[in-house]
Amino acid sequence: MKTITAKEVETLLNEGKELNIIDVRETEEVAEGKIPGAVNMPLGLVEFRMHELEKTKEYIIVCRSGGRSGRAAQLLDTYGFQVINMTGGMLSWEGKVE
């Protein structure tokens, strides 16, 4: 499974790169702050909402610490999606939040 650090994601965003970020935390967790532009798709709903994603795009998967995003990334990878797990999750995020 491909991985990326929170710092690398922050650098890419600061460079103006358009990233497809999926935050698999629960809605209450996301309400406390998320990476700007990230789409919330709680882990329990990923399987039912994967039809919203495109296999031609690459997605960075985020959670609180990296565990749930790893599970979501494995699931999506199984279905042929291009995914990268952000290691350390939001606990490692030092960038802006919305």
Score class of each variant (00 low, 15 high):
Tyr79Gly: 03
Tyr79Cys: 04
Leu91Thr: 03
Lys57Asn: 14
Pro42Gly: 07
Glu28Lys: 08
Glu94Asp: 10
Leu45Val: 03
Gly66Arg: 11
Glu98Gln: 07
Glu54Ile: 00
Glu10Tyr: 01
Gln82Leu: 12
Gly44His: 05
Lys2Phe: 04
Leu43Ala: 07
Leu45Lys: 12
Gly70Cys: 10
Glu47Ile: 04
Ile35Gln: 05
Lys55Pro: 03
Gly44Lys: 14
Ser92Glu: 15
Thr5Ser: 15
Glu58Trp: 01
Cys63Pro: 02
Gly37Ala: 08
Lys96Trp: 00
Thr27Asp: 14
Asn85Leu: 14
Met41Phe: 07
Gln74Trp: 01
Pro36Ile: 01
Leu91Gln: 13
Glu26His: 01
Ile22Trp: 10
Thr3Leu: 11
Arg49Phe: 11
Val97Pro: 00
Thr5Asn: 06
Leu75Cys: 03
Glu8Val: 00
Leu75Ser: 05
Leu53Phe: 11
Met41Ile: 15
Glu28Gly: 00
Lys34Asp: 05
Ala31Ser: 13
Met50Asn: 09
Ile61Arg: 10
Glu26Arg: 05
Tyr79Arg: 07
Arg64Val: 01
Ile22Leu: 15
Lys2Pro: 10
Leu13Asn: 00
Ile60Glu: 06
Pro42Thr: 08
Ala31Thr: 05
Gly44Gln: 10
Asn14Leu: 09
Val24His: 11
Lys55Arg: 15
Thr11Arg: 07
Val83Asn: 07
Arg68Met: 09
Glu10Gln: 13
Ala38Glu: 12
Gly88Asp: 04
Ala31Phe: 02
Trp93Thr: 02
Glu8Trp: 00
Leu53Asp: 06
Ile35Phe: 03
Lys2Asn: 14
Met90Trp: 02
Ser69Glu: 11
Ser69Tyr: 11
Asn20His: 14
Val39Gln: 15
Met1Tyr: 05
Ile21Phe: 07
Lys17Cys: 00
Lys57Cys: 03
Asp23Lys: 13
Val62Glu: 13
Ser65Gln: 05
Gln74Gly: 13
Thr27Val: 13
Ala72Tyr: 11
Glu29Asp: 13
Val39His: 11
Asp23Leu: 13
Lys96Met: 04
Glu52His: 09
Gly66Trp: 07
Glu54Gly: 08
Val46Glu: 12
Leu45Trp: 09
Arg25Ser: 06
Glu15Pro: 01
Glu94Trp: 00
Met86Leu: 13
Ile21Asp: 09
Leu53Asn: 10
Lys34Ser: 09
His51Asn: 13
Glu94Gly: 03
Thr78Ile: 02
Ile4Leu: 12
Glu28Val: 04
Glu32Gln: 15
Val24Leu: 12
Ile61Trp: 10
Met1Gly: 08
Glu94Gln: 14
Val24Trp: 10
Leu91Phe: 02
Glu26Ile: 02
Ile22Cys: 12
Arg68Pro: 01
Glu52Ile: 05
Gly70Asn: 14
Ile61Pro: 02
Thr5Val: 02
Leu43Asn: 06
Ala6Thr: 04
Asp77Thr: 13
Met41Tyr: 08
